[in-house]
């Protein structure tokens, strides 16, 4: 199997880089953020990223005949026409007339798995995220490959259809919705410039420059988790820490909030899958 030696190579490289990070002196950390360590980690990997493993698996999944109808996803329309992957992610979320719904990438993939491949919706949404074990998620792999095909493309979320505009406004309202035992909303951590939680830098998602930087760096390979994490995962885990109930995968709220954040990042050059702590 072709991938095996590469995988072992990656494992060794990641282990070596993690070891070097662990040895990094803690001195001066007061004014230094983890961003510096991540930058060093990237250097150690010499422009490589374990996310490539997910990308390769995702491309294979895209082209493999699967599901009850035994067809590939190659006819899936991600917004730029049937089978067009290049640059598609940079214009999502968007309104899809065939579903009469605004969809982000992950929702669209579920839609294609159901309509083209014949999966039951529950099966198509069965394992959106990997759990850190060998049981990897197909969704994360497909997203890794499809997003990688938008590298270098400028984010251009249109907001022309009334349903896109409504999704944006609902997402915006969600962003400011403070609730739960801690009174947290997205805005609590992401509404001011140059803030940190512990040593982690927090992007101000209301500032275009910051929103571009943050949004164009997802999905990302998370070193601490050994998984490639998608934007649906990012939102899901934010709400867990916000002390809300669980955000459902591909739910309307997840799409609306993604629409708000993606639109705020308009004009940014897409540069993911990225590498994060």
């Amino acid at each position: 199997m072709e991938e095996t030696p590469r995988f072992v190579g990656w494992g060794a490289l990641v282990a070596a880089a993690a070891f070097a990070l662990a040895l990094a002196p803690a001195a001066g950390a007061q004014q230094k953020s983890v961003a510096d360590d991540i930058a060093r980690y990237r250097e150690l990997l010499q422009d490589g990223n374990p996310a490539e493993l997910w990308e390769m698996r995702g491309e294979t999944l895209w082209r493999t005949k699967r599901g009850p109808k035994a067809v590939s996803l190659e006819q899936c329309d991600l917004g730029l026409g049937s089978g067009v992957v290049k640059g598609a992610y940079a214009a999502l979320p968007r309104y899809f007339a065939d579903a009469d719904r605004v969809m982000d990438l992950e929702t669209r993939l579920v839609h294609c798995m159901v309509t083209l491949q014949g999966y039951a919706p529950a099966d198509a949404k069965k394992q959106p995220f990997g759990d850190g074990t060998d049981k990897k998620s197909d969704n994360e792999a497909l997203v890794a490959w499809i997003t990688s095909e938008s590298k270098g493309v400028v984010i251009n979320v249109a907001l022309t259809h009334p349903k896109e505009q409504e999704a944006y406004r609902i997402g915006k309202a969600m962003f400011f919705h403070r609730a739960g035992p801690h009174d947290f909303g997205c805005v609590t951590c992401h509404g001011e410039a140059h803030k940190r939680i512990r040593l982690q830098d927090l992007p101000n998602m209301l500032d275009p420059a910051d929103a571009r930087r943050a949004y164009t760096s997802w999905p990302a390979y998370r070193v601490s988790q050994g998984e490639l994490r998608t934007f649906q995962w990012r939102l899901n885990d934010c709400f867990r820490q916000q002390r809300f109930p669980e955000l459902e995968f591909t739910s309307d709220a997840s799409i609306a909030l993604t629409m708000f954040l993606a639109r705020n990042a308009n004009g940014g050059t897409y540069n993911a899958p990225a590498l994060k702590r």
Binding site: E166, G180, S254
Partner: peptide
Amino acid sequence: ISKKALLVMKSSFKEKGQAKLDRLDQDEVQ
């Protein structure tokens, strides 16, 4: 829109562990 956002949220979150759906409701301060 805020009212619709709450309805959308109520149908988009699911109860898990101690976090029930009423956590999406707001008191006067929130």
